[in-house]
């Protein structure tokens, strides 16, 4: 298994599309930064005009923390799409190039082969989230500096700069769980569909439907807890004044459980499937 994982990492690193994906994430960040720079200040002025007369805010409100919050909001559709394309490609490219046959004609176990692909997909997803957090953090704090964070979630929530930094860190960690779920979904779709373009379409469709269902209320509390689209924005819980840690852990555990089930299903299906 270790040798298979290493081979997958080498293949991923040798492909130019991996770097295109990281470049795309960085480009999206930059575009969000530019938009935030030109529009953020004006929006904040309108939102907070009356409050500024009664309260004292440390530093400018258009600061690195707010920019990171905007990046967080902006990336939960674009980034999973990129992640799903790359992670599904880890398998669909093997079908396209015929290397899946060449690999399985060696002394290699089918289950270990697909297991290694899931491991690398998960590793790559975590790397992208870490890259996104570090690159956007460096850029945001360098360009916009630190300061208090103001967020509108049902009401205006204010967080001192140090507290905001911690909350953003936790939000990235929680968001990473959602991203892992998406990457596992795309890999499992690749196991079923095998063809790159069709897998991308199915992945994009899954992402769109998940986003559309995010706000759907099933009317039953327990059903809402287990309905996966409603678990995707758990990271927002860190921007309420009181963090509901119980909800955060429960949602992420359920989501991870779904991920593990999907991996099990993908490995089982792959082992049963004919190759070619």
């Amino acid at each position: 298994m270790k040798t298979l994982v290493w081979a997958e990492i080498v293949k991923l690193m040798k492909q130019s599309k991996t770097y295109y994906a990281l470049g795309a994430v960085f480009l999206i960040e930059c575009l969000i930064f530019i938009t935030a720079y030109y529009q953020g200040s004006a929006i904040l002025d309108v939102l907070l005009d009356s409050l500024k007369q009664s309260f004292y805010f440390e530093g400018t409100l258009l600061n690195g923390n707010l920019i990171l919050y905007i990046v967080l909001n902006g990336l939960w559709f674009n980034v999973p799409l990129i992640i799903m394309i790359i992670t599904s490609g880890i398998l669909t490219d093997e079908y396209k190039d015929g290397t899946i046959q060449t690999t399985l004609l060696q002394a290699v176990d089918k289950g270990s082969f697909i297991g290694a692909k899931y491991v690398v997909a998960i590793g790559f997803t975590l790397f992208v989230i870490a890259f996104m957090m570090v690159s956007s953090g460096i850029l945001a704090y360098t360009i916009f500096g630190k300061g208090d964070l103001v967020v509108y979630l049902q009401t205006l929530n204010f967080f001192p700069a140090a507290d905001a930094f911690q909350r953003i860190g936790w939000a990235f960690a929680s968001g990473a769980v959602a991203m892992l779920f998406y990457s596992v979904v795309s890999m499992t779709l690749a196991v079923w569909i095998k063809e790159a373009a069709k897998t991308w379409i199915a992945s994009a469709l899954f992402l769109i439907i998940t986003n559309l269902l995010l706000k759907l209320d099933l009317g039953i509390a327990i059903a809402n807890h287990f309905f996966f689209p409603k678990l995707m924005d758990t990271w927002q819980a860190f921007f309420y004044h009181e963090i509901d840690w119980g909800l955060v852990w429960l949602n992420n555990t359920i989501l991870l459980g779904y991920g593990v089930c999907l991996i099990g299903l993908g490995v089982w299906t792959f082992r049963k499937q004919d190759i070619g």
Binding site: W6, A7, Q15, D97, G98, T99, I100, T102, Q106, A107
Partner: peptide, 27 residues
């Protein structure tokens, strides 16, 4: 059994030695 079926399945973005290395490494 060693085999080539339909066409030789190779990683097009790797050179010959790296292709061999990958397939040797996984075994």
């Amino acid at each position: 059994i060693g085999a080539i079926i339909e066409k030789p399945g190779l990683y097009p973005y790797l050179n010959a030695a790296d292709n061999l290395r990958i397939f040797a490494g996984i075994q």
